[in-house]
Design a protein around this nucleic acid. Structure first.
Lengths: 352, 352
DNA sequence: TTGAAAGCGCTAACAC
DNA sequence: GTGTTAGCGCTTTCAA
């Protein structure tokens, strides 16, 4: 089928060439910018380009070897504030480095993740950034390893961000933030206030981010020589509703505690409301702390003591690291620090 | 330059063909799936594909006419909760319809927006979704109109989402949510409680979303026959910090009011903290209401009365509408309704 | 300084 | 069923 002239707008370089009375190569050259072209022809070509409102097809350019590089950002849930900040960092840095940025939400579904990575391989993406905790099973490692290998062999690259890293030798760039360390510091702070029964509102038991924070909780206890009551370790997910539900349950069940640590600020936010609904004052009756330091944390009442995680920086760093990498360079493994932000939601326990 | 064999992974369809002892077309056919191929060859080809870990180059396929369609989502700020929810809707729906989803943040910079749209034209994106208010100037309309035209003439499509629509005849799909109506209902609710001096913490004066909400504020007043004091109309932006700063200023300045309406929940969130810092009780001393109904709104103390906007649905609808469109169909213009969510932050004014 | 021709990796029409 | 050939829209030798 030949192109109809009504097919306006879908102009090819040849249309421009014809209109300017030159060859396609010439048009390509003036568009390229560097190659010497007489200013007369250049003017004619420029004119034709404008007349036709022509833009070269980026896909075709890519096939010919001069494409716009692309990078993919894969996460479970776009709406979480911490992920949103990371997405921001990724997108900004990608743009700064001249890359297009694809996003994809997997809803925690492994199948969707695999499918998407395969598409990215087909797109010849410069890198695929996988974000967020996951269950660190043998199956996970094997699958992810396979992804890393196939991406690497296609000249692309896998980045694991806040995700379980694979064994040594896997061609991945990993960037983590210190979940255990942050939780340790936070719980140590709460213990130092005198609390001994601290409720932990955790995430999914097999989720590595949740696990790290839980490990920190445990480690802080044993460092202080206090034996944590296993009944105080609750599991849910990282949402506001989970925090609300878990807290409500704990209250109803009559669990005893003087402080609660939530695995995320979202969880803390829901828990706070549940506490209030239960007629409890924070921090008068019970102390509360979160994790992530999302912008809202300081507008809660009382302002939430939490752990700051540099999410935006994390995203930027992921992009910068993977894109700045030479093929021979060794795989990088970065661990970002976090710090406790003390606000008003933690106080010494009530005398009794 | 010929391909080196060490160039593993960057296999072409011809490499697969050679390994399977067939022609490239045959490989293409078994990969395509539908065309009849003898099961013997199919097996050999499949084998070769697996051995080589081959994935067809999507860009090349695109040039040949069978590409993966792509859609672009452009916003000012990815981190805002309402935008994040919209992004979620867009991404989910795009994926559901088999489209790749590119994101780009413009930071409110017109230049960045233009550049990006041009890239999208080059990428032959199926649609470009522009999100968020803007200054509705003649310059804006002209520029956007030009974008719409050039996109349309390239077979693509512009979607304006919560943005000033252009004059009639522009090839755009527009999806709005009712800012004026929502604000009207909200302010009417506050007036009905007996408030007469209501502070409005608005956005940028020339930003259409902010304007719409402000118009609703004004309209509700005049419907009720009360004359709003112009001194009570403050302007900032849609961030938490803006709300905090504005509120703080109003307090310091000794402005008199018994209620405050914030242009967004983020603004309300910051204002709430400022109010608290000023020793004022909400809603005892002053009532407060927001706009957007972000998930956090109900965890604020007191739980925030606000206007619910179906952001996720907005995103989904934008995608569905534009992608489901036939070329001859008339341009669609949708207006989504909003509704007031009454919680605890608004109460009748104190007797005096 | 310019054009013709080959090639990028793929699909599809056309033969056999 | 399968291979050959042309073609998608572009860039880049190679000659002139």
């Amino acid at each position: 089928m030949t192109r109809k002239s009504e097919d306006v707008g879908r102009n090819t370089i040849r249309d421009v060439a014809a209109r300017a009375g030159v060859s396609a190569s010439t048009v390509s050259r003036v568009l390229g910018g560097v190659y010497p072209v007489s200013s007369a022809t250049r003017a004619r070509v420029t004119r034709a380009v404008r007349d036709l409102d022509y833009v070269a097809d980026a896909r075709a350019k890519a096939v010919a070897g001069v494409g716009t590089p692309t990078l993919a950002f894969v996460l479970e849930e776009i709406t979480g504030p911490s992920f949103a900040h990371m997405a921001y960092g990724v997108e900004r840095e990608a743009t700064r480095l001249g890359h297009l940025c694809l996003v994809h939400g997997t809803e925690g579904d492994v199948r969707q993740e695999l499918e998407f990575v395969e598409m990215m391989r087909a797109q010849r993406a410069a890198a695929v950034i996988l974000v967020g905790g996951a269950a660190d099973t043998a199956e996970y490692r094997e699958r992810t390893r396979r992804i890393a290998d196939s991406l690497a062999s296609a000249g692309s690259r896998l980045v694991l961000c806040g995700r379980p890293s694979l064994g040594p030798g896997a061609p991945v760039t990993v960037i983590e933030y210190d979940n255990e360390g942050g939780a340790y510091a936070l719980v140590a702070h709460v213990l130092a206030q005198g609390h001994r029964r601290i409720l932990f509102l955790g995430g999914k038991p097999d989720h590595t981010t949740a696990q790290g924070r839980e490990r920190g909780y445990l480690a802080a206890h044993s460092a202080r020589g206090v034996e944590p009551d296993p009944a105080l370790l609750l599991h849910g997910d990282f949402t506001r509703d989970s925090g609300h539900r878990l807290m409500r349950g704990a209250l109803k069940q009559g669990l005893e505690f003087t402080a609660v640590i939530a695995a995320t600020d979202m969880v803390a936010s829901g828990a706070l409301t549940a506490l209030r609904e239960g007629g409890l004052d924070v921090p008068g009756d019970v102390s509360l702390a979160g994790y992530d330091d999302i912008p809202f944390a300081r507008d809660l009442y009382p302002a939430l003591t939490t752990v700051h995680v540099p999410y935006e920086e994390l995203g930027r760093l992921a992009v910068r690291t993977v894109l700045g990498r030479t093929p021979e360079a060794p795989d990088e493994h970065l661990l970002l620090g976090t710090h406790v932000v003390v606000r008003d939601s933690v106080a010494p326990p009530k005398e009794r």
